[in-house]
Design a protein around this nucleic acid. Structure first.
Length: 116
DNA sequence: CTGGTGACTTATC
DNA sequence: AGATAAGCCACCA
């Protein structure tokens, strides 16, 4: 399991993304208290998405585009999202203004307390 | 310790 | 819109 606070928060936050919504790597990192740690979110998705049963497909990049390459599961992620009602526009870009999950400060703190 | 790496992001052109 | 560069940070060989 992940012991350090940052990792635990990231895991908790990803788990909290509602179906039909998405979050960005940087957004999760920001909610977890480290705005610059987007690449650590990626690392955790690699190491824990399966073991922690995370809704990994709900995490995309800031532009609303899927980060995976075609041979890495791009189509599976897109399929999972579309199944949840997430809509893609031109250039495989999700309408983030409609689908990005933006919890309030209080919700975020409830999910990932700052004092761990 | 050092250097390489990544499902990123921001700034610039 | 696409390309490039630099910053980022935890992990790992």
């Amino acid at each position: 399991m992940t012991q350090n606070p940052f990792s635990r928060k990231v895991i908790a936050l990803i788990r909290a993304i509602p179906a039909g919504r998405v979050a960005s790597y940087g957004g999760i990192a920001r909610l977890a208290g480290s705005p610059r740690a987007a690449r650590q979110v990626v690392r955790l998705l690699h190491s824990s998405s399966r073991k922690e049963c995370l809704p990994w497909h709900r995490v995309v990049n800031r532009e609303g585009r899927i980060g995976l390459k075609d041979f890495e599961g791009y189509s599976e992620q897109k399929r999972r999202l579309e199944l949840e009602g997430v809509e893609f526009g031109p250039h495989g870009r999700i309408y983030m203004e409609r689908f990005e999950w933006r919890p309030t400060q209080e919700e975020a703190r409830r999910i990932a307390p700052l004092d761990e």
